[in-house]
């Protein structure tokens, strides 16, 4: 086990942590942050894993560099959409989520 592999494993943990947060959170900003955590985890796996086999490798590093820039633009676009959504509806979560929550909470109230 070398240094790179430690970070590949960390990336794996980060990805599933982000996935968990993405599923469980309702607030759109939090979901976006969880999604970004997942992305960072993927970047770590990509570089960490390939470098643990072959040493410092420019190819995955360059790909991750593009990935970081694309990630920030996707995040910014998502933030614009979230703010637009908030501007139109006054909500910070999606209606499908709220509906399913209300259903279960009313069931709990009945039961």
């Amino acid at each position: 086990m070398n240094t790179f592999f430690i970070y590949a494993l960390t990336g794996g943990l980060l990805s599933s942590l982000g996935l968990l947060g993405f599923i469980l959170h309702r607030h759109l900003l939090r979901r976006l942050m969880a999604f970004n955590l997942m992305g960072s985890g993927c970047f770590l796996i990509l570089t960490g894993l390939s470098q643990s086999h072959q040493g410092v490798d420019a190819v995955p590093q360059a790909l991750v560099l593009t990935g970081i820039v694309v990630a920030v633009s996707a995040t910014a676009l998502a933030l614009v959409l979230i703010r637009r959504w908030y501007h139109l509806t006054g909500q910070t979560s999606l209606p499908e989520d709220v509906q399913s929550l209300e259903k279960t909470s009313s069931k709990e109230a009945q039961g």
Partner: peptide, 28 residues
């Protein structure tokens, strides 16, 4: 830096921490 990718460290410090942070705080 520890993964020996200084290019990524530069980009992450400027974009990941700087720009994304400003975007999120602004949205918040």
């Amino acid at each position: 830096v520890r993964v020996e990718a200084p290019d990524l460290a530069l980009a992450e410090a400027a974009i990941g921490a700087g720009l994304t942070g400003v975007l999120f705080l602004d949205a918040l």
